Simulated assay, not measured.
Amino acid sequence: MNIRIIRNSEEYKKATVYLDELLSSGDDSNDDLIDVMALLISNYEKVHFDIGLPDPVSAIENRMEQQGLTRKDLIPYLGSQSRVSEVMNGKSPLSLSMIKRLHEGLGISYEVLMQDQTRELDERNVNYEDYPIAAMFKKGFFPKVIKSVTEAKERAEELVRDMFEAVKLTPFAIAGAPHLRSAVHTTNKRMDGLALQAWQAKVLHQTLDKKLPKCDLDSIDLPFLREILKLSRLEKGPLLAKEELANNGIHLVFQEHLPKTYLDGAAMWGVDGNPVIGMTIRYDRLDNFWFVLMHELAHVSLHLKNSKEVYFDDLDGEKNSDEDEADDMALKALAEKSEWDKYFALLTTPESVVNLAKKLMVSPAVIAGRFRKESSDYRIYNRLIGSNEVRKMVFP
């Protein structure tokens, strides 16, 4: 028989007969010829007889039949009994984590299981459930179609990747380490870097539908900070600050912190190329709010201009030169040090605090909070620091 590419059904029939003859001959010298004929026949069959891959559910059912498994045996791969029923009845798609478990546990090929997926598997040795999925679910990080913590954990990879990719972050690539003020500190708190990154992603997400003018960083200077701080004397000062910063191209986002982040605020670049300030309102006091805001604005003014880093701030943590510079500018937003030193000695009564606040056109909370901090006397002026006034305003 002439060995050539098979072009039609007649040649295919002849080739299969010839291959059978070669296989039946038992002649080892025909091994190479058998390989060639088998390849030619296989190529023809792929073009003319290929019925495609089985769908994922059919592949699972086939493996169950081969191994004598019941649906109950699928719980380790698919989750709860109800989730097994949903998947096997075609009411719920396979998640990426399910696909990994089915491949590793039952040996079903990724090619079959991934047919309906819109994204590729993350082949790194990472576990998306290491993110604080339960806390993220409770704080509304995920779409409303996700109805439970269990479902969020089952779909952890898709949910985290969707959220991160939308804001151009890479899961498990922790940003901002050189400026992570709480990376090493004296209180022995353990910072959860994944929770920190998840918080960052959520903050950036909240800027995606906000169209702001381009920020002129040169205008974000000490006089600008002082004008923003004057809004503190108004009843809705934090919300007015958010509005005024937006008018100047700066996103101000309020997002509660996640467990083990010990975070007060952060300054970073947004997807739109404008600065973003995130605030957690970890301490629900007006004095803390305004200092944290001034501190983050100082980072925008002093550091973002020449850096793409993220500045995460636990203001109880250890300091470095950038943090010292931000603290110094934040304090100067109220008054130059020489002026403040003169005022400090006069702050002996609540009335003196209120009078100085009127003179400097700021909230009494700003004066009282700074005095308490620098005097290390946190029993004084408790009624002036605006306790329990911020969260109800920014997290209605």
Score class of each variant (00 low, 15 high):
residue 198 A to R: 11
residue 198 A to W: 12
residue 198 A to S: 15
residue 198 A to E: 12
residue 199 W to M: 09
residue 199 W to P: 10
residue 199 W to A: 07
residue 199 W to H: 15
residue 199 W to R: 10
residue 200 Q to I: 09
residue 201 A to M: 08
residue 201 A to L: 07
residue 201 A to G: 15
residue 202 K to W: 10
residue 202 K to A: 15
residue 203 V to C: 10
residue 203 V to F: 09
residue 204 L to N: 03
residue 205 H to C: 10
residue 205 H to E: 15
residue 206 Q to G: 06
residue 206 Q to M: 13
residue 206 Q to W: 07
residue 207 T to K: 00
residue 207 T to P: 00
residue 208 L to D: 06
residue 208 L to W: 02
residue 209 D to Y: 04
residue 209 D to C: 05
residue 209 D to N: 14
residue 210 K to C: 09
residue 210 K to R: 13
residue 210 K to I: 14
residue 210 K to V: 14
residue 211 K to Y: 09
residue 211 K to W: 04
residue 211 K to G: 03
residue 212 L to K: 06
residue 213 P to R: 10
residue 213 P to T: 05
residue 213 P to Q: 07
residue 213 P to N: 09
residue 214 K to P: 02
residue 215 C to Y: 00
residue 215 C to R: 05
residue 216 D to P: 01
residue 216 D to G: 04
residue 217 L to I: 11
residue 217 L to H: 08
residue 218 D to W: 06
residue 218 D to S: 14
residue 218 D to T: 12
residue 220 I to F: 02
residue 220 I to A: 01
residue 221 D to R: 03
residue 221 D to A: 13
residue 222 L to T: 03
residue 222 L to W: 05
residue 223 P to I: 14
residue 223 P to D: 04
residue 224 F to H: 09
residue 224 F to T: 14
residue 224 F to G: 09
residue 224 F to I: 13
residue 225 L to N: 03
residue 225 L to A: 02
residue 225 L to W: 01
residue 225 L to P: 05
residue 226 R to A: 11
residue 226 R to H: 12
residue 226 R to Y: 01
residue 226 R to F: 02
residue 227 E to S: 14
residue 228 I to E: 00
residue 229 L to R: 07
residue 230 K to V: 01
residue 230 K to E: 13
residue 231 L to A: 01
residue 231 L to D: 01
residue 232 S to P: 10
residue 232 S to N: 11
residue 232 S to T: 01
residue 233 R to D: 08
residue 233 R to C: 10
residue 234 L to H: 12
residue 234 L to E: 14
residue 235 E to Y: 11
residue 235 E to T: 15
residue 237 G to P: 02
residue 237 G to D: 05
residue 238 P to Y: 08
residue 238 P to W: 08
residue 239 L to V: 14
residue 239 L to R: 09
residue 239 L to Y: 04
residue 239 L to T: 11
residue 240 L to K: 12
residue 241 A to F: 03
residue 241 A to K: 05
residue 241 A to E: 08
residue 241 A to P: 07
residue 241 A to Y: 05
residue 242 K to L: 10
residue 242 K to R: 15
residue 242 K to D: 01
residue 243 E to W: 03
residue 243 E to G: 02
residue 243 E to Q: 14
residue 245 L to C: 02
residue 245 L to T: 09
residue 245 L to W: 09
residue 246 A to T: 07
residue 246 A to C: 03
residue 247 N to S: 13
residue 250 I to Y: 00
residue 251 H to C: 02
residue 251 H to P: 02
residue 252 L to A: 03
residue 252 L to I: 06
residue 252 L to N: 00
residue 252 L to G: 02
residue 253 V to C: 01
